[in-house]
Measured scan of single mutants.
Amino acid sequence: ATNIVGKVKWYNSTKNAGFIEQDNGGKDVFVHKSAVDAAGLHSLEEGQDVIFDLEEKQGKAYAVNLRIK
């Protein structure tokens, strides 16, 4: 899926990971530091509006192509 709108639920820069809550009510999506880095960002803030694509690896959904809304 592409161009999904959501809000950062939480992001821990020590653990280099967090979750994004989908505005469409879907399951929360894992976001890794690699996606944050690829977006040219240093970190994510709780409640921040984002747009992202979903990629599945080994049955788990990940946020990729992250951008700030």
Rank of each mutant, 00 (worst) to 15 (best):
K60M: 10
T14R: 14
D23V: 15
E55R: 11
F52A: 01
K33A: 10
K60L: 10
K27I: 09
K15M: 15
I20H: 00
G18L: 04
E21F: 09
V8Q: 00
G18V: 03
Y62A: 07
V29I: 12
Y11G: 02
K57I: 11
A39V: 06
K15A: 11
V31M: 04
K57E: 08
N3T: 06
Q22F: 11
Y11E: 02
A61Y: 14
G25M: 07
F30R: 06
A39H: 02
V50W: 01
I68S: 07
V36I: 11
V8E: 01
T14P: 05
F19D: 01
L54C: 08
D23I: 15
E55C: 13
L41P: 02
K15N: 08
R67V: 07
K7V: 08
A38E: 08
E21P: 01
K60P: 03
N12I: 07
I51E: 08
V64K: 08
F19V: 12
D49G: 14
A35N: 04
T14C: 14
L66Q: 00
A39C: 03
N65D: 02
N24W: 09
K9Q: 03
E46S: 15
I51T: 08
V5C: 14
F52N: 00
N3Q: 07
I4H: 07
N24C: 10
E21H: 11
V29A: 04
E45D: 10
S13G: 10
K60G: 07
W10R: 04
Q48Y: 06
V36M: 09
T14F: 13
T14V: 12
G40P: 02
K27N: 10
A63F: 01
K60T: 07
E56I: 15
A63I: 05
E56P: 03
N24K: 10
N12M: 07
E21W: 10
V29S: 02
K9W: 02
K7A: 04
I68H: 04
K27Y: 08
V31R: 00
V31T: 01
E55N: 08
L54M: 11
G25C: 08
L54G: 01
K7R: 13
R67F: 04
V29M: 02
T2Q: 12
Y11V: 10
V36D: 00
A63P: 03
K9R: 10
K27A: 12
V64Y: 04
E56W: 15
G26N: 09
K57W: 12
H32Y: 07
N3D: 11
F30A: 05
G47N: 06
N3C: 10
T2G: 06
H42Q: 12
V8M: 03
I51A: 04
Q58H: 14
H42L: 12
F19Q: 07
G18H: 02
K15W: 14
Y62G: 04
E21K: 15
T2C: 12
G26I: 06
N12W: 08
S34F: 10
S43R: 12
V50F: 03
K9T: 03
V64F: 04
I4S: 05
L66K: 00
I51K: 04
V5K: 15
V29Y: 06
I68G: 04
N16E: 11
K7H: 10
E55H: 12
L66I: 13
D53F: 02
V29T: 04
G47T: 03
S43W: 12
S34T: 12
N3P: 04
V50N: 00
Q58N: 15
E55Q: 11
E56G: 06
Y11I: 07
K27M: 10
K60A: 07
D53E: 04
D49M: 15
G6M: 01
K60I: 09
Q58F: 13
D23R: 15
E56K: 11
L41A: 06
G25T: 07
K9Y: 03
E46D: 08
G25N: 08
V8G: 01
E45R: 13
I20C: 01
K33H: 08
N12S: 14
H42A: 13
A39D: 02
F52E: 00
L41V: 07
K27L: 10
H42W: 11
N65G: 03
E45L: 12
R67G: 03
K69G: 11
A1Y: 12
E55A: 12
E21Q: 15
L54P: 00
G47S: 05
N16I: 04
K57C: 11
D23A: 15
K69V: 13
V50H: 00
V29W: 05
K9H: 05
K33I: 07
F52L: 02
V31Q: 00
D23M: 15
W10P: 00
F19S: 06
A63M: 02
V50C: 03
E46P: 15
Y62E: 07
A63V: 07
H32W: 05
I4T: 04
E55S: 09
G26M: 10
G59S: 05
K69R: 12
L44D: 00
Q48D: 10
Q22S: 09
Y62V: 08
E45A: 12
Q48L: 10
G6P: 00
D23N: 14
W10I: 04
Q48E: 08
D49F: 15
V64E: 04
G40N: 08
V64R: 05
D53A: 03
F52D: 00
N65C: 05
D37V: 15
V36A: 03
A63Q: 01
G40W: 05
F30V: 05
Y62N: 07
D28V: 10
Q22N: 07
V8S: 01
D23P: 15
I4F: 07
T14W: 12
A17M: 15
Y62F: 11
E46Q: 15
V36P: 01
E45W: 15
V8F: 06
K7Q: 05
G47H: 05
L41H: 06
L44F: 05
H42N: 12
A38K: 11
L66R: 00
I4K: 09
G26Q: 10
L54Q: 04
K9P: 00
N65I: 02
S13W: 10
T2Y: 13
G25R: 07
W10L: 04
E55D: 07
N24R: 10
K57S: 11
N3K: 06
Y62D: 03
I68Q: 05
N3M: 06
L54F: 05
L54H: 02
I4Q: 10
L54W: 05
H42C: 14
S34I: 08
S43K: 12
G47V: 02
L41M: 09
Y11L: 11
A38H: 08
Y11A: 04
L54A: 03
V36S: 02
V29K: 01
E55W: 15
K57G: 08
D23H: 14
K7C: 08
I20N: 00
Q22E: 04
A17H: 15
D28R: 09
S34Q: 09
I68M: 09
V50K: 01
S13Q: 11
D53T: 04
S43T: 14
I51H: 03
V5T: 15
L41S: 03
K15T: 10
R67A: 04
I20V: 05
A17F: 15
V31P: 00
D28Q: 09
G6Q: 00
E45K: 14
A1V: 12
H32S: 11
G59V: 01
A61Q: 14
D37A: 13
A35I: 06
G25E: 06
G59N: 08
D53V: 03
G26W: 07
L41N: 02
N65R: 07
K57M: 10
A61H: 13
D53K: 02
Q48S: 08
E45P: 07
